[in-house]
Amino acid sequence: MKHIILIDDDSISNFVNSQLLLQTRFVEDVKSIESAEEAIEHFEKIKQGTEGLPDLVLVDIRMPVMDGFTLAEELLQRFPELKGNVLFYFLSSSLDPKDEERSNNHPLSSGFLRKPLSKAYLEQVFR
């Protein structure tokens, strides 16, 4: 679990989370992406081999234009090989149980992480 992609439209949130991730022992690099469109472009590059395959993907649910669930759906459609090979977590500060439920039920999903993240929380989840 060395290479991580973080997708969140909130740049500050992205910054904070990538710092936190980098502070855990098992993370080597974090790629921050600020919109779903960019994320798709990035995965396209991974497919083409110009970018490396991440070990873990964290996706914010509430993003403008294309939200996290739509993105996950899009990724599964375009890159079905992701399923099973990459840990894929949904990320949100939402307290709506429906968001959590949807996250857990998505075929690509490995789980749901609630903001704010903390080192202790991350270590607990990824141990």
Binding site: D10, I12, S13, V16, N17, Q19, L20, Q23, R62, S92, S93, S94, L95, D96, K98, D99, K115, P116, L117, S118, K119
Partner: peptide, 28 residues
């Protein structure tokens, strides 16, 4: 229901960021 959850999200998101920043500030 949706409204309440969305509002709480929009209010919690900044808090989450602030908390994260505070952690960073404290720990580093």
């Amino acid at each position: 229901d949706r409204f309440v959850y969305s509002v709480s999200h929009d209010l919690r998101a900044p808090i989450a960021s602030v908390k994260g920043l505070l952690t960073l500030m404290r720990e580093n």
